[in-house]
Nucleic acid binder design. Structure first.
Lengths: 202, 202
DNA sequence: AAAGAGTTTGACCAAAAGGTCAAAGTCACG
DNA sequence: CGTGACTTTGACCTTTTGGTCAAACTCTTT
């Protein structure tokens, strides 16, 4: 098994290709809806070759989820308790919307997983995620107490940021079907900014 | 095949049981993630017996989607152009949130389908759905023009209502994991009402 | 109570899918 | 340039799964 010692050039290349292919396939079809053959084909490898790098379909999936969870939470981590409250929130909203535009597959991967009950990342949700959210909710609570933001339930505020921004990635087909020709991301930035500005302006 | 003539008592009972079971299973695992055996077991029938009522897994799924699409859009249809603008929108928001609470499986069924590109209801999205949304967006546009609502992009307003309310059903596990003991629907109604009140108050 | 319509099932089938393995091929390095 | 580590693959295995079918059973109706 290709572990323990430093990865070779080929290992680095192939592992990366597999994870990229897996993101493509899993995000479009979910875990059960994806086949190892599909992923192998997308990565340009044969199935046994792919299974030489990852022990199983499950292993690929969880490796992908873990690798991406950090990226996914970075924007929230960047929320600065020392910054100007409304601007900090709006900056967070903008970063999240940007991610929906630039990394829709990642968004859909998580959406798939969570809609189906998060069987494989439940621990992370009530662990790291909860800790991070609680911490930032506390910051928001303080801002509200200081009269810097209009009063709202901090946790639900965070949920609303997630739902509004990720909607553009997760429900992309629906949004585009309804909008017709109009590009969703034309009006979205101003719209979501308006939502949170009006909601939070003290 | 049990078609053409009036359905028997047994047909009515079994078809209903199958659709109920299919909702339970499909909403939790998606189309590919669900097996006919699972649905049959949940319906209390043998697999061949189930396939006596519906020709295939696909048939059950699309029957379910069709049957539910109307229910799903009813709250938007009820938006009354003759009503008081802000109250009409807030009533719509309340109805949608109520549906997330009372019919989370239906919400997740659609979420699963749409996240994966809506392969089986794409037509309905750019057909009936678009027509309905365009119509109601026009109503909202008029309300804004009449100075009854603060200016916002009508389509994106509707998206925001969908995303905020459905989030509580579709991402239920995540919401609960983050909130811990607190019941999401304790604060949600007031929160979403506040969001749209502050957003739209002229 | 008999006949025919409607219902149920065990046994079965073929395809799909996850995964294994031994053998062959390629690469890095002394 | 040879040797051992690393990589790749064709063939194969097993389980799962969607679906079929003929035979048996039950219900309704006359």
């Amino acid at each position: 098994m290709p572990q323990e010692r430093a990865p070779t050039r080929i290992q680095i290349k192939n592992r990366a290709a597999i994870l990229e292919a897996a993101l493509e396939v899993f995000s479009a079809h979910g875990f059960r809806g994806s086949t190892v053959d599909q992923i192998a084909a997308a990565a340009g490898l044969s199935k046994p070759n792919l299974l030489y790098y990852f022990a199983s379909k499950e292993t690929i999936y969880t490796a992908l989820l873990e690798r991406l969870l950090d990226t996914w939470l970075d924007p929230l981590r960047a929320l600065d308790p020392g910054g100007e409250p409304l601007e900090e929130i709006l900056a967070y909203v903008r970063r999240k919307l940007q991610m929906s535009r630039d990394l829709p597959r990642e968004s859909r991967l998580f959406a798939n997983e969570i809609v189906q009950g998060a069987p494989r990342i439940h621990a992370a949700l009530s662990g790291d995620l909860k800790v991070l959210v609680d911490e930032k909710a506390e910051v928001i609570r303080d801002w509200i107490a200081a009269g810097k933001l209009a009063p709202v339930h901090p946790h639900h505020l965070i949920f609303s940021i997630w739902s509004l921004t990720q909607h553009y990635a997760d429900f992309d087909v629906q949004v585009r079907a309804v909008l017709g020709d109009e590009d969703p991301f034309e009006a979205a930035p101003e719209f979501v900014e308006t939502v949170f500005r009006r909601l939070l302006q003290a």
